[in-house]
Write a protein that binds this DNA or RNA. Structure first.
Lengths: 142, 142
DNA sequence: GTTTTTGCAAATGATTTGCATGGAT
DNA sequence: ATCCATGCAAATCATTTGCAAAAAC
C-alpha cells in the first residue's frame, strides 16, 4: 500500500468532479479505521472528535456521496437506522432479532441464479445484499 | 384448499393465545388478496375501505403480530418504508435504485454457507433476506 | 367480568431540506 | 470570482407509545 487513504479519496473525488474537503477526508479516514459497518450517528460522533462542528447533514450527504463512488455500502439490516459499511467486497450480515446487533459473516453467497432472474426482467443488478435474521448466541443463552 | 383464510388465521391466533378480531381478519384477507409485498400505508388504505376507522397503529401492531406468527415477512429493501410480504416461502427481491420499485425474483439463492457461518458464531438464523440492487428495465431505458 | 385490542393524539427518531455563509477550485 | 459544500434550524415521514374506550374471551 503505497497510497494513503487521503490520496485514494482525493483521486476518487476529483475523478468524479467533486471537491476535496476536510470533512470528507476525516469521514473517509474514520470509516477506514472503524473497518466495519456503523450507524451514521456513531460515524458522526467519532468524526466530530477530530473535526469539531461537523454536522449530521454533512455526514449523511458525505456517506451518500461515498456510496455513489462505491466507497461504502449502505446496509439495511432492519431497525430504523441504516448501517454504512466500508467493507465493499461482498459479504453477508447476521442481524439479531432480539438485540439488533449486526455482525459480518465470512461466507460467500452464490446469488447468480437471482442475478440471472433479474436480468431476464431487463434489470441490471450491481449489488447483492444478504441478511440473515435470528437469535445471536448471547440472546439465545438468556 | 378446504380451509378458508379466515379459518387459518383464527387457528393460528388461538394457538398462540391471541384474540380473533375483525381488524386482524380483514388485514389477513387483504394481504392474501394482494399476494405480493406492500407498504403498511397501502395495506392500511385498502383495508380501510372494508373496515372504516381502521387505524395505522393497529395495522403496524397487526403486521408485527403476523410476522411473529410467520404469516408475513418484513422486507427492508431500502427506502424509508418497510415492505410486508405475504409470500413467506424464500424468494429474492430486486430493488431499483432510481425509482425504488421492488419486484420479486423467482430464483432460489443458496445461502447455506452463510447459515453455516452464522451457526459457527453461536447464532441461530431463521430467515434469509436477499435483495439485489441496480437499475430496473424501465429506468435503464430512460 | 377480566384482559386484550383498538383508536386517537402525541411523541419519537432517523434522515432530508432550505437557505445563507464559508471554502475549494 | 465562481460554484460547491457546510452548518444551522426546521421540516418530513415512517413508526411507536400512552392512555381511555370498546370488544373478545
Amino acid at each position: 500500500m503505497t497510497t494513503t487513504a487521503d490520496e485514494r479519496l482525493s483521486a476518487a473525488l476529483r475523478a468524479a468532479g467533486h471537491r476535496v474537503t476536510s470533512q470528507r477526508l476525516v469521514l473517509y479516514r474514520v470509516l477506514g479505521e472503524l473497518g466495519r459497518h456503523a450507524h451514521a450517528e456513531e460515524i458522526a460522533r467519532v468524526s466530530s472528535e477530530r473535526l469539531p462542528g461537523l454536522s449530521l447533514p454533512t455526514v449523511y450527504a458525505t456517506l451518500e456521496l461515498f456510496e455513489g463512488l462505491g466507497l461504502v455500502r449502505r446496509v439495511d439490516a432492519g431497525g430504523p437506522a441504516a448501517l454504512f459499511d466500508p467493507r465493499t467486497e461482498p459479504h453477508a450480515h447476521f442481524a439479531c432479532r432480539a438485540c439488533g446487533t449486526v455482525s459480518d459473516l465470512e461466507a460467500a453467497v452464490d446469488a447468480r441464479a437471482a442475478q440471472v432472474a433479474a436480468r431476464a426482467t431487463g434489470a441490471e443488478p450491481d449489488h447483492v445484499e444478504v441478511v440473515l435474521r435470528g437469535l445471536c448466541g448471547a440472546c439465545r443463552a438468556s
